[in-house]
Nucleic acid binder design. Structure first.
Lengths: 164, 164
DNA sequence: TGAATATATTTCAAGCTTGAAGCATTTTCA
DNA sequence: TGAAAATGCTTCAAGCTTGAAATATATTCA
């Protein structure tokens, strides 16, 4: 059996999806590392920036769980990051008036200013990294990632159905 | 100034690239988390699987630095993961015959068998997550990620040129 | 009502990752 | 040649992340 066939069990069936996934992962990792490094040069970190960006998109505030869900990180992690930001007065937590379990997190004025500053740089870095794609390519890529996103969501549903 | 204009300085200029990047990151994060969870259900971890997969693609062995570069992780990290795999006899390190600094890492027979087993599952999971894309869409996505990859590489060159 | 269940959040230990410092070996070039 | 620079690798401390357990509050429904 040739190396080409080894994991396929069939000649000519290449692992196209795995190669696609590896390329996707590689793009995303490289961009992420570069953003991370540049943020750290400015004394910020990516997790903190992510929290602030999500709050910026939700001016009415978010609960801890909502943050956790939107950011795809664990609850414990959100707690740690928000507490750190809170200590520096960049975000504020207030108890929900209607539910004693819930905290609502918002950017403070200072946090908004700090974020606006970082976001400008972030926007510039991203633009520079995507400079080699023309408008049509960007739009196509955006649409195709939408298809992928739906496909992934679909698979999760199927997986959950198997459980029950 | 409206919220829409806040970070743009110009009406109608939306942050398309940032949105594209966030969608890319989100796809990649969700897939990665799902793979990570399933590997851990089988007693494996993603970093260890990544090292074994890279060695599988390079049957002649790789140096620690080459692994670090291919995997986009730090040297120290590679050392830790390879040492752990080595303890379980899944990989072996041998000194380079021509360069006393270099170690060459390879899969052992046992490591190859263990990887083949995991890779089969991995292949299946990825296929399931990409099931919603037809052949043409996959190919387009692969090609567009190639354009993005080149664009990112380009930006790095420019960044380095600024240094000197 | 009130017991059982569900939900929101925090705490904590274990493992991961990084980047800087350090050591060893090799290469460069005056 | 041999001093300086570069390269390969490891160690280590600091910070990040997770997932499970703990705590507190809300909701459900017998």
């Amino acid at each position: 059996m040739s190396i080409r066939e080894k994991h396929d069990g069939q000649v000519g069936v290449d692992r196209v999806n795995v190669r696609l996934w590896l390329r996707l992962l590689s793009c995303s990792t490289v961009i992420e590392k570069r953003v991370r490094r540049r943020l750290s040069e400015r004394g910020a970190t990516l997790p903190r920036f992510d929290v602030m960006a999500t709050l910026d998109r939700n001016p009415d505030g978010l609960t801890m769980s909502a943050l956790s869900r939107l950011l795809l990180v664990s609850n414990g992690n959100v707690t740690a990051v928000v507490q750190a930001l809170s200590k520096e007065r960049l975000v504020q937590m207030e108890p929900s008036p209607t539910d004693g379990r819930v905290s609502i997190v918002r950017l403070t004025e200072q946090g908004q200013a700090s974020f606006d500053d970082l976001a400008q740089g972030h926007h510039r870095w991203i633009d520079a990294m995507f400079k080699g794609m023309d408008k049509k390519e960007s739009e196509q890529l955006f649409a195709l990632l939408g298809v992928l996103k739906a496909s992934i969501a679909d698979e999760m549903v199927e997986e959950n159905e198997l459980e029950s």
